[in-house]
Design a protein around this nucleic acid. Sequence first.
RNA 1: GCGCCCGUAGCUCAGCUGGAUAGAGUACUGCCCUCCGAAGGCAGGGGUCGUGCGUUCGAAUCGCGCCGGGCGCGCCA
Length: 587
Amino acid sequence: MSADPKTQLADLLRAALKSVAPEQADTPIHLERPKQADHGDFATNLALQLARPLRRNPRELAALLLGELPADALVAKAEVAGAGFINFTLAAGAKTAVVREVLARGDAFGRGVRKGVKTQIEFVSANPTGPLHVGHGRGAAYGASLASLLEFAGFDVTREYYINDAGRQMDILALSTWLRYLAFFGIEVPFPPNAYQGGYVIDMAREMRDAHQGRFARVTLEAVLAGTPGLPPRERKDDEAKAQREAHLDRLIANAKQLLAEDYAWVHGFALNEQLGDCREDLQEFGVHFDKWFSEKSLFDTGLVERAVAELERRGHIYVQDGAKWFRSSGFGDEKDRVVQRENGMYTYFASDIAYHLNKYERGYDRIIDIWGADHHGYIARVRGAVAALGLPPDRLEVALVQFAVLYRNGQKASMSTRAGDFVTLRELRREVGNDACRFFYVLRKSDQHLDFDLDLAKSQTNENPVYYVQYAHARVCSVLQQWGGDVAELAEVTLAPLASERELALCAQLGVFAEVVQNAAADHAPHMIAFYLKDLAGEFHGWYNAERMLVDDEAVRGARLALACAVKQVLASGLRMLGVSAPESM
RNA sequence: GCGCCCGUAGCUCAGCUGGAUAGAGUACUGCCCUCCGAAGGCAGGGGUCGUGCGUUCGAAUCGCGCCGGGCGCGCCA
């Protein structure tokens, strides 16, 4: 298979460059697609770049380069323009050739060849303490799309979810569930305002009661509350009151562990499994798949957390102060040092995260991509620092930040606190808007850009969602092909000479950039570029569709046009697939 | 206070890593279904790219200073 026009042109230019200026033969050759049609199909600023080192007029250099350009059937016209650009117009045959290539390669068209680059992507990783909300949804849609995109670009991708099953938040969930459960047996412990308020907690408590009756209720109100500092008045919002509420909660947890003894692990595990199961189901319905669910707790069970901290210590990056162990992250680009092991002997979340990243490296990934909420950006320096301190190459670790989605309802910001139980869940959103619109909408802007998610708009005006525009183009092609009724496979052999109108050639050019868009989007971690590309491609198609008929009597014209439409359909399907959006045959 | 992100059409956003006359969608105006799907197309108005310097052949894009907005700065996770 011949190389694509862009590489061929670059080769021709390289040859010309070598004879015009051998000493500058390494100058990178940049070819771009001009915005204006009369600037041809490709343009290069090579002469402008050479002007400075060679101390020569750029237009003269451009003319010299053109003089030395080897003749090739690919190029129909090449001319010097503007300040010293060289504009190329391709032969019509070179432009339409992409149609045959798409039809020949099918799903594989546009795929990159970087096989063997092991890439791990970790995303969502929400605490399993309640339903996923709209913010998690964005991380899920972004991560899943990026993973598919990288895979399409040729990387060997593993998708991973990190389960925070070892921390205080899980204890709070277990406690919350237990307190709701106790209420069924007349033990009415005042429900702490900083425990999980959501109705799903009561549902879990009810399940516990139905399955186990009073097994976990052989306690008294006094015993549950023993030693707690009590709750400050609701209206108090000062730091002291907050600290007291947290202390109250911690004491309740301690009491629960003591009173339930071995049953505490059961309650904890029950709540975890319920929420994790719900989360998995939710993501699966959303078309988001994971290859591995990695437990934070397992890092403790296998002793990796201990080993990671010990390794940092061995390398001299740990010191003790105020009874706690500190990692000297300030020596690795962080703004200050961080605690890894508390005064009470407990490891911090940071410690297990160091261990987790050590584990990722030990599994031998070439690229490790973490997708975090943008509020974690202050966390990057310390994790990267820890990686470096462990003697691992920090360049392999890439962090992509996803800004929160801010919900608007009736023009008002909607609250999204999980603990308050007042938020819109991903599941609710999916049911209202549909998975396709949801996935597309989420990746329609750069991930590090704030997303104003207007619920009313997304719910009530689904027909205006751009996803339908792209899907409609796909369905239209399917519809025409069906009415034609011929053998699609034969279209791959058809002569493409009848494709000559401006619209048809522009459409071919659009198909031709697909592989490039994929590579750029992959390099930038930017699946939104795929979404925008699809919108553009669909737009070109709709315009053409309205201007020309495909099912005409002239067999040659009909064949060529159907072949083009078929190629468009293929690329639309490939792109939509990357974004986790369906490509319907009819709608 | 320090750090990161952002400021482009009335609104929501792109802008291919420095290129030629800054683009879509939406909204507004006027057209196009006896015609493969009108969830579509065509045409039109709409801009000091927050702002001021600088870097160079050339800046929405790179650097610095302001102005405005978001987020983060725990022995929480």
